[in-house]
Amino acid sequence: MSTNCVELRGLTFSRGQRVILDSLDIDIPRGKITAILGPSGCGKTTLLRLIGSQLRPDQGSILFEGTDISRLRRQELFVLRERMGMLFQSGALFTDLSVFENVAFPLRLHTDLPESMIRDLVLIKLHAVGLRGARDLMPAELSGGMSRRAALARAIILDPELIMYDEPFVGQDPIFAGVLRDLIKRINEAMGCTCIIVSHDIAETVSISDYMYVLSEGRIIGQGAPDAVMNSDDARVRQFLQGLPDGPVPFHYPAPDYRSDLQLEEM
C-alpha cells in the first residue's frame, strides 16, 4: 500500500462554464499535516468537498486509502465518511442540539455504546479542546472560536483517519488562532491521523504543516516542504506568500486604457 492517504489524479471540476479545478494531481501523505494554500476563490473549499465526496468531479479520480470514492454510491459514501472528519469554516454545529449532544451525535449514530461510555468519550474530547465546562451551552451561546473548537471535538469523536480543516484560522483573534494551531498539531501527533488544512493564512499554516501545495486559479503553482516553498523563486508563489499587491495576479481588473476611459485625449 502506498504511503499516501489520499491521491488525486487528473481532477477536474467546473461549475457551468467556469473551470474551478483543472486536472490536479495531489498526494496527501498518511499521518502528516498537508497544507493547501491559495488566494480566495481558487477552489480550495471545492477541493475539500470533492475529497469528502459531497461534490462529484467532472474528470479524474479521488483515491481514499485505495478506493476511488468518486465512483461510490450514495449509501456506500455514508459508510466511508465515518472514517473522515471535517471542520467546517463556520463550525456547522447543529443549532438545535447542545454542545454535548453535538459532539455525541456521531457516536449515537454509528455506535451502540452505552450512555455512560458515550458520556466519557464526549467529555474526553471536550476536555481536549478545553470546553468540558461548556457542555450544556447551546451553539448560539458560544463565541466564534469556541464553536469552532466544539466542532473540532465533534470532528474527532470517531477517531477518523483523515481530518480536513476548512479555513480554520479565518476570522479568529490571534489567541484563538494559536490555540487552534496547537490543537491541530496535538491531535495529529496523538491520534496519528492524516490532516489536510486548507487556508490562506500563511504564517499559522506554515508553522505546523509538513508539506505544502500552493494553488492558484485551479492549478498547482508550487509544492514541497514549507521551507522550500517559502523560498520559491516562482513569481506567483512569491506574490501570494509575501502579500504583494501587484504581480502576476494583477491589481487591476481587466479594463480599457485609463486615459482614454477618462476621455482625457482631447485636452
Binding site: R49, Q54, R74, R81, E82, G85, F94, L109, A151, R154
Partner: peptide
C-alpha cells in the same frame, strides 16, 4: 451554515 454538509460528512443523510 454548512450544517447539512456537516451531517453528510458525519454520515447522516
Amino acid at each position: 451554515t454548512e450544517q447539512l454538509a456537516a451531517m453528510e460528512m458525519i454520515g447522516v443523510d
